[in-house]
């Protein structure tokens, strides 16, 4: 078991013919993900690597291949449109890798996704590394070989910091049920809290790693929910303890505004909810070990 992706995932890639799209489609195929279709408007009828059919529209791809998830590599200016097209076609899981989507675009996309029929779609990202259920299905840009099958769920706002945490887990023999990046933008799809809820309900997940960062209040909200509802141990790390106020730290969403959204305030909320907080990014896995009854 896992969350959101498994052996029944049939993947579409929007922007399959672009450089990054093509490179990562190959990597996902190599991992064993069933990539069944691609969409590049104007290239309908072609094939990617002679085997994966390319369509002009997502609806067509959905009808002819039964794809139920999409990975979006469309450039930022066109990515909001790609998300909406996927939702309109009824794709259940939309994973948007694209970075730099205008925030006003995402604001409108989110409101449309909240209405039916788009309501049935789950959006991961944008500006995220994607999602992987080790050994089964990879949708995204994460280096596959660092992952191992297992029972730790990982959710993060960052890409490379997630790889760091996964690396620490795998090198201690702690495999992962599912790992997902929810993205570094201020307005994005599923939240920390949504992910905790899914992991809590997933029988294959034994414990959860949650990686947050400065900006917004998602970690605090997740902590409140976890305090009341979560039955599984959680270890959190918050990046940005040393970040100055009022500066955007790479991610559009990583900014301390008017003194709120600091790492300190997030750590306090997490600790108050009984969540273990790793004090250094090198201690993420070692903070989890005692909670699993291991050294």
């Amino acid at each position: 078991m896992s969350i959101l992706v498994d052996k029944n995932t049939r993947l579409l890639v929007q922007g399959i013919t672009g450089k990054a799209g093509a490179f990562h489609t190959r990597a996902c195929c190599d991992y064993g993900t069933r990539v069944v279709a691609g969409v590049t408007p104007g290239r309908g009828g072609d094939f990617f690597e002679k085997s994966i059919p390319i369509f002009d529209t997502v609806s067509q791809a959905r009808e002819e291949t039964g794809c139920n998830a999409t990975m979006i590599f469309v450039p930022a200016a066109l990515a909001a449109d790609a998300i909406l097209e996927a939702a309109q076609a009824g794709i259940e899981l939309i994973v948007c890798i694209t970075e730099g989507i205008p925030v006003h675009d995402m604001m409108r996309v989110k409101k449309i996704l909240a209405q039916s029929p788009a309501k049935k779609s789950t959006l991961i990202g944008p500006n995220c590394p994607g999602i992987i259920t080790p050994g089964v299905c990879k949708i995204g840009i994460m280096p596959a070989y660092i992952h191992q099958q297992g029972s730790i769920g990982v959710v993060s706002r960052s890409g490379t910091l997630t790889y760091e945490a996964v690396w620490q887990l795998s090198s201690r023999g702690l495999g992962q049920s599912t790992c997902l990046g929810i993205g570094g933008d201020p307005i994005h799809g599923i939240t920390h809290q949504d992910a905790l809820r899914l992991f809590n309900d997933d029988p294959a997940t034994e414990a959860i790693i949650m990686i947050g960062e400065i900006g917004g209040s998602e970690e605090e909200e997740a902590a409140l929910w976890a305090r009341a509802e979560c039955r599984k141990p959680i270890v959190a790390f918050i990046a940005g303890t040393t970040a100055p106020q009022g500066r955007r730290m790479g991610h559009a969403g990583a900014i301390i505004q008017q003194g709120s959204g600091t790492a300190q305030e997030k750590k306090e909320a997490l600790l108050a909810a009984g969540i273990a907080v790793a004090q250094s990014p090198a201690d993420i896995a070692t903070t989890l070990l005692p909670l699993l009854g291991k050294n």
Partner: peptide, 17 residues
């Protein structure tokens, strides 16, 4: 560093040590 989250975490661990 590559990646914003890891870049922040790298600053944090420098300070941590």
């Amino acid at each position: 560093v590559n990646g914003a989250g890891l870049a922040m975490a790298t600053m944090d661990i420098i300070k941590h040590y």
